[in-house]
C-alpha cells in the first residue's frame, strides 16, 4: 500500500505503469495506491480524441496539465485538492472477468465510502453512484498477466472549471444541455463533512480490508523506470495520438 502521495499527472501515470511492469517481471508484489494530483490535470482515455475531449487552451490558461491514460474510458478532471485517485495493480489471475472485476474492486471503494456514511452503488460498467449521481469512475487494463485498475473519487466539485475544460459531447448529453451533465455528478463533500485526509483513510481501509498488506514505498527500480515513462506521458506524440 503506497500513499496517499501527491505528484503531477505525468508521474502519477508513469508510476502506475512502472508498478505494473515491475509486478509482471516478478520484482515487486501487488500494489494498491492512493494519489492526488498537483497541479490539477485532465486525464483522457486511451481511445479518446484529445481535441474533441479537452479545451487545451483553457487548460493552459488555468495551469491544468493534460495526459492520456494507458486505460480506456472517459475524460476525468483531477482537481487539485478536489479528488482522490486509487490504483489496484495485481495478477490478473486473482480476478474474475472484466465486468465482475470492476464490480469487485469498485465494491472496495464503496466500502471505503460507507465508512464516511456515504451509500454508494456500483453501476456497470465502471461507475459508482450516490443517489443516482456519479461520484466515482474507474478504468482497467490487462497487460502481461497484470490487472491494473485506477479510478477517481470526487471529493469537492468545481463544476465551473470542470465543464469549461471538458468538451462534453452533444451525443453524450443527448440534447439535454450542460445542466444535465452537471446534475449527474456529485462529490463526497455533498454527503459528508469528512476532510480529504479522512476520505483517503476511509478509502485505504476499504481497499485493504480482508487483505494481507504492509505500508510500502517505491523501489529504486520502479522510480527509475517511472522517470523514463514520464517522458512518454509528457510527449504530445502520446497525448495527441488520437
Amino acid at each position: 500500500m503506497i500513499g496517499p502521495e501527491t505528484r503531477d499527472a505525468y508521474w502519477n501515470m508513469a508510476l502506475d505503469e512502472a508498478a505494473s511492469e515491475a509486478l509482471a517481471s516478478g520484482l515487486v508484489g501487488p500494489t494498491i495506491r492512493l494519489y492526488l494530483w498537483r497541479p490539477g490535470a485532465v486525464s483522457i482515455g486511451y481511445f479518446q480524441s484529445l481535441a474533441q475531449e479537452v479545451d487545451r487552451d483553457r487548460c493552459g490558461a488555468l495551469g491544468i496539465d493534460v495526459v492520456r491514460r494507458r486505460t480506456g474510458g472517459g475524460a476525468v478532471y483531477h482537481a487539485e485538492g478536489g479528488e482522490v485517485t486509487y490504483s489496484v495493480i495485481a495478477p490478473e489471475g486473482l480476478f474474475p472477468g472484466i465486468t465482475e472485476s470492476y464490480r469487485l474492486i469498485c465494491g472496495w471503494v464503496v466500502e471505503g465510502l460507507a465508512r464516511l456514511g456515504i451509500k454508494g452503488e456500483f453501476r456497470p460498467v465502471n461507475d459508482i453512484l450516490v443517489r443516482g449521481r456519479k461520484i466515482s469512475g474507474s478504468a482497467q487494463t490487462r497487460r502481461g498477466g497484470i490487472l491494473h485498475q485506477h479510478g477517481t473519487i470526487l471529493y469537492r466539485l468545481d463544476k465551473g472549471t470542470m465543464f469549461s475544460i471538458l468538451r462534453v459531447g452533444k451525443e453524450k448529453l443527448a440534447g439535454k444541455g450542460i445542466e444535465r451533465a452537471e446534475a449527474g455528478v456529485t462529490s463526497v463533500s455533498e454527503h459528508s463533512k469528512a476532510t480529504l485526509e479522512e476520505l483517503c483513510a476511509a478509502l485505504q481501509a476499504g481497499l485493504t480490508e480482508g487483505k494481507e498488506w504492509v505500508p510500502g514505498a517505491w523501489t529504486d527500480g520502479e522510480l527509475e523506470r517511472a522517470e523514463e515513462l514520464v517522458q512518454k506521458y509528457r510527449d504530445i506524440g502520446w497525448n495527441g495520438r488520437r
Binding site: 480524441s49 486505460t71 465502471n126 487494463t141 497487460r143
Partner: peptide, 15 residues
C-alpha cells in the same frame, strides 16, 4: 478509419 471514444478494448493495441 479512426475510432475514438470512452469505451474499453482489451488489449488496447487491438484498435
Amino acid at each position: 478509419v479512426t475510432i475514438t471514444g470512452d469505451f474499453f478494448l482489451h488489449p488496447e493495441e487491438g484498435i
